[in-house]
Amino acid sequence: MLEVRNLTKIYDGGVLALDNVSFSVEQGEFLAVIGLSGSGKSTLLRCINRLVEPTEGQILWNGVDITAASQDELLRIRRKIGMVFQHFNLVTRSKVITNVLAGRLGYVNTGRSMVNRFPKSDIDMALKQMDRVDITDQAYKRADELSGGQQQRVGIARAMVQEPEMILADEPVASLDPVLAHSIMQHLDQINKEDGATVLCSLHFLDLVHQYADRAIALNDGLLMFDGAPEAIDDEKFKEIYGKEAERVG
């Protein structure tokens, strides 16, 4: 259970990115976050694992206040939250398997990980998760030799080896073509259904929201505009979320 209470973020320079946002997510739910570019979706997701430090408000996850966690506690919270990015954010010069194993960093001994020595069980787990997203063949290639869709699957495998209880996906399919987009969304769906991880996924296309999400929230200019089932987004709601000139495209 994730509870966001009165979350506000003001960046240095006075930009108000999130304005008193409150919502909650059940464990195992697939929540879509929609809204225009710049509406605060990325900031919201990054506040949850405190890659961005919230200005005000609380984020309670299974009863623990993430916003009040000390540095050490935060590392232990983060290792249970996988994150998937729009631009994949792989270390392109490293091997695929190294990128995936990076997901284990929160669990392994610092000294051993410095010299790239991971326990056998971790390597097995990495290979297993890579098999689930079908990139085992690429394990020992450099990450920048892979295509976009493959790179995003590496990103998902990296999140999966964290044995996450929650996945934060920041527009995971925005840089991919529609066919690849569906395959990536299916992988996220798989983590959600098979592993029982909560998924918070920001999306641009409403058909993807309809197809994969249990529930959707919408942001506009940092304000929470909508919280409910995807089917409840009718034309009126749509215009409220995306502005009056917006047209639905698929």
């Binding site: 890659l51 990076a102 960093l105």
Partner: peptide, 21 residues
Amino acid sequence: PGPLEAVQATGANRLQTIVFA
């Protein structure tokens, strides 16, 4: 900054982030 952010998000500490990202 992307890979840095991604490695930090896994719960890696500062030294690990430097070595991996």
